[in-house]
Design a protein around this nucleic acid. Sequence first.
DNA 1: GACATCACG
DNA 2: GACGTACGTGATGTCC
Length: 934
Amino acid sequence: MGDTTFGKGCHLHLIDGSAFIFRAYHALPPLTRKSDGLPIGAVAGFCNMLHRYIEGNNGPDAPTHAAVIFDKGSHTFRNDLYDLYKANREAMPEDLRPQMPLTRRATEAFNVACKELENYEADDIIATLACQAREAGGRVTIISSDKDLMQLVGDGVEMLDAMKNKRIDRDGVFEKFGVFPDRVVDVQALAGDSVDNVPGAPGIGIKTAALLINEYGDLETLLDRAGDIKQPKRRETLIEKRDQIELSKRLVQLDCATPLDFGLDELDVRKPDAEVLLPFLAEMEFRTLSRRIADQLGVEAPVIAEPAAPEAEADAPEAPAFDEADYSRVSDADALQGWIDQIRERGWVAVDTETTGLNEMIADLVGISLCVEPGRACYIPLIHKASATEDLFGSDELVEGQMPLDEALAMLKPVLEDPAIIKIGQNMKYDAKIFARYGVDVAPIDDTMLMSYAMHGGEHGHGMDTLSERYLGHTPIPIKPLLGSGKSAITFDRVPLEKAVSYAAEDADITLRLWQVFKPQLHRSKVTTVYETLERPLVPVLAQMERNGIKVDRDTLSRMSNAFAQKMAGLEAEIHELAGETFNVGSPKQLGEILFDKMGIEGGKRGKTGAYATGVDVLEDLATEHDLPARVLDWRQLSKLKSTYTDALQTHINPDTGRVHTSYSIAGANTGRLASTDPNLQNIPIRTEEGRRIREAFVAEPGHVLVSLDYSQIELRILAHIANIPALKQAFADGLDIHAMTASEMFDVPLDEMTPDIRRKAKAINFGVIYGISGFGLARNLRIPRSEAQGFIDRYFERFPGIRSYMDETKAFAKENGYVQTLFGRKIHTPEINAKGPRASFAYRAAINAPIQGTAADVIRRAMVRMPAAIEGLPARMLLQVHDELLFEVAEDGVDTVIDRARDVMENAADPAVHLDVKLTADSGQGANWAEAH
DNA sequence: GACATCACG
DNA sequence: GACGTACGTGATGTCC
């Protein structure tokens, strides 16, 4: 302080602000400001770190000048040099974004200079300031551990890793890079950086780069004399990739001449101003920190209001027992307003809806329950009617003690749509869909089911009963006794109010308690990103898709049903004739007895229940010799198509919309895949011509077409990447027929001499690998001897050794950790991997498959999350997802644009979180119906 | 409600 | 050396 002119004897501290923020963000649980729920954890950590830094720099070596330097925006001049620079970076977590401006304010509140500059990285500003300070004869300490800054070290410039409290000087840099600071950029240019996506020279890492630079002196000399290098591979790389290496150097070279609009003198160290700092800390509601700082500054600590009822926090236990919980009925506007006030104070609320049924497209809203703190919840009944016991005639008149539905919704809508209030639910997609039908767009949300899925996928189910028992030690009130079952079952609007309150309020209470348990755990399990990028944002997307539905033509289905019925009747007569007696063709048990006992066919195998097995495989074998099993196969196919599709689909056509609305379970499949239910639209026939025609009944509205985009071979591409198989990667890069290429490689057959049969075998092996191949399984699939199948597998491993190591490593990882992971960090638990016997074998194959299937599932989830923004404003709706396919309904004049945009999103869906070595491609189709579009 | 079967990726 | 086996789903009909 005092003398502000920077010069000899001055000491400048430059703090890498982004590093502080990210360290703070990841070190702390996701704290929120009590009064409004604003995420604040990173700001809290940042302030603590900044405070600790100031505290620790009061000694004799105290800086005379200091500044915190931030990045501004994500686009810099380096992106103009190379558009993929830092393209690997995952988008900033949702709950961090609003905290960024607050960290700037915090820096200013501590009275420390705070600098950033459009189009430049923080590193460039740091470099420029360090150069200026050095020239002025002062000393510089850069507080960061970023290796990109190491090029600046020397001549009075040092780095300090604040976390490890370790100083890095010239020798420290040499330790890290094998060269002194003035050659660091040369080494970085060669070695590249996968984190920042600096390409460098392929196959050259830091060690080799340092070796080369030390031998030739500098990068330019090395590149000029690259021809002298003995190792042929290295020589070629350096010659061929010269441009790329020189580009890399420009990317890593920091700019010491950024156009700053301030001088070093402005950065002089100043004492914090209590009148600025304390109000800021109070606004953030940092109680401990503001008290500590107030003490140090010798002033009164600011009073920060406790928004929660103080008596509840004083000595009552955090979570009261369930049997002491306070559950009330809300039956007028005053009472509801009281709850709304509390919600606004907290910034969050657990919400649950009660309805007349499980189908969100049809069910009516019966009541709403709310909970803001454990043990205190309410239920707002809206359309309860007299129950049968109260009124034998089942009057439709509403019972007393309820608010008008419109009034309650009008009051709640601003809360449910308020971006500052988190709405917590268990399976929020259900409630969001119900509310959407009443004109309320619930957002933002948290979902305890999805939190559990992200943390415990594969360990157990994620229904409320399971979670409550497991994590709260409480068995929820069962719904059965309230609603009854079978013919006498009633809907929730007939449940007496008092019972409804205990049941419904408890659900909201449980949800809130689960949320409080899960929220901090999410972070500790390192699945916050999975939850925030792959689970939660999918909720509104799926809700919209489900509400869109797909138009299904009843007449087409009905005609097909009739045709199937006729054919089946004919076949049934033939079958009875051949059997010599009538029996139920649909009964595998009776069929088995006819085939193997009465007709005396050899080779009948009995399953574990003692009945003969009569599956397709068995009947197909028999069909070569006998007519009856052949007819049964035909009959079964028709029976399946009729009962599961042409008949059942008709019953799913919504009378209001004329469309079929499936429901996707987000947390159903262990691998991260979605599952479609009621009806399942992910298994509509396609493999046989007869079945495929069912897709003709899935149609577009007049003036529209159905557009389908599907990933080509996504799982094999992911396998090629994960197991790192150069031959497979190359084949995909060259656009080859992957199964033909595998066949050629395995059986030494040139591609132009490939036969369909050899290709078919290779295809089976490729799929087998994805499924955790076994000789037995492959043998059965290809109907070849087991020894031959084993030979194929051995040969496959020989040709693609990476597959073997992937399988071994995955198995070892699962045994060690109890789970495996996708490329995006999704965990799939494999609790049975250490079991004994065949169960371990199952778990082992599932563990091999899960990262592949799961990564593919993550990729399409990412595409789906981004899709609404990509097709915004276009006359298009996303309707269905079938694992690797997305189906849209598009107005005729928008088709080309939609295909372009959707393909772009799908093909780049892995970026920037993961850079795949293999390109993803999506094929498209269009037509009046799904058969034509696919 | 378990089981067998079969539709999909 | 022996387990049993391809991975992941959901819907339907039979039978107890």
